[in-house]
C-alpha cells in the first residue's frame, strides 16, 4: 500500500497529461474537457511546487537552529542566516498583505542591495579560478587536448571584439566552429540526452524505476 499508491499516482497523472497533448474535446461526453484537465493538473502542480520550496527552509532552520542552541563553532553565522531569512520573510509577507509604496521599496532594496549583488559576487569569483586553471591545468598533453585548446583559443579571440583587429579571420573561423562543428557535437549530445530522458521517464511512469520512493 505504502509503495503501490505512489506508483499509481505517478502513472495516472503522467498518462492523463501525456494524453491531453493528443486528445481534445469533452472527457466521457461530459462538460469537462481534456484542456481543462491539463490546465487543472498543471495548476495543482504549480501549487505543490510552491510548497516544495519550504522543505529547504525547514532543513536550514533545523540545522542552523541546532547549531545556535548548542552554541557550536560558527553559531554567530547561523544567527545571521536565520536572522536574515526571518527579516526577508517578515518584510515580504507584510508587503504581500498590507503593502504600501514604502514596504514595496524596502523589499526591492533588500533584493537589489543584499541578495542580488551577493549572489552576483559569488559567481563572479569563479573568473579568478578560470584564470588560474587556464595557467596551471590547461595543457596540450595529447592530440585531443590540443584540439580542445586550439578551439578554445580561437573561440576566445572570435568572441572578444579585439580578435577581429588582430586577425580579421578570427570571427569567421570562430563562427564556423560554433555554428557548424559545435552545433553537430551539441546536437548529438542533446539527442542522446533526449533519448535517455525519454527512457528514464518511461521507467518512472511504469514503476520500474522506484529510487525516488526511498527504502521501506
Amino acid at each position: 500500500m505504502r509503495r503501490e499508491v505512489p506508483l499509481v499516482i505517478t502513472f495516472v497523472i503522467g498518462v492523463l497529461l501525456i494524453a491531453s497533448y493528443f486528445l481534445q474535446g469533452p472527457i466521457l461526453g461530459g462538460e469537462y474537457t481534456w484542456k481543462t484537465l491539463s490546465s487543472d493538473i498543471t495548476n495543482w502542480g504549480v501549487l505543490v511546487s510552491a510548497f516544495a520550496v519550504g522543505i529547504a527552509a525547514v532543513n536550514l532552520t533545523r540545522i542552523h537552529g541546532n547549531k545556535i542552541t548548542n552554541q557550536r563553532p560558527g553559531f554567530i553565522n547561523s544567527i545571521a542566516l536565520i536572522g536574515t531569512m526571518v527579516i526577508f520573510i517578515a518584510v515580504g509577507v507584510f508587503n504581500k498583505h498590507f503593502g504600501t509604496a514604502g514596504t514595496r521599496a524596502l523589499f526591492q532594496n533588500m533584493f537589489d542591495y543584499i541578495l542580488s549583488p551577493l549572489g552576483a559576487a559569488m559567481f563572479a569569483i569563479i573568473a579568478f579560478y578560470v584564470a588560474s586553471a587556464s595557467y596551471r591545468a590547461f595543457r596540450a598533453r595529447s592530440a585531443e587536448a590540443t584540439m580542445l585548446l586550439i578551439a578554445a583559443i580561437i573561440m576566445m579571440m572570435a568572441s572578444a571584439p579585439i580578435g577581429a583587429l588582430i586577425w580579421s579571420k578570427f570571427p569567421v573561423i570562430g563562427k564556423w566552429l560554433l555554428d557548424v562543428v559545435n552545433m553537430a557535437g551539441q546536437r548529438g549530445i542533446r539527442l542522446g540526452v533526449a533519448i535517455g530522458g525519454f527512457a528514464a521517464s518511461m521507467r518512472i511512469l511504469l514503476g520500474i524505476d522506484r529510487g525516488h520512493l526511498g527504502s521501506e
Binding site: V46, L47, S49, A50, F51, V53, G54, A56, A57, L60, N77, S78, A80, L81, I82, G83, T84, M85, V86, I87, F88, I89, G92, V93, K96, M110, F111, I114, L115, L118, G119, M122
Partner: peptide, 19 residues
Amino acid sequence: HIYVGAAAGYTIVVNYGNI
C-alpha cells in the same frame, strides 16, 4: 550565511505568494 538566509527567505516569500 547572510546570502543563504536572504536567498531562502526571498524564495519562501515569493512561493508563499503563489500559494
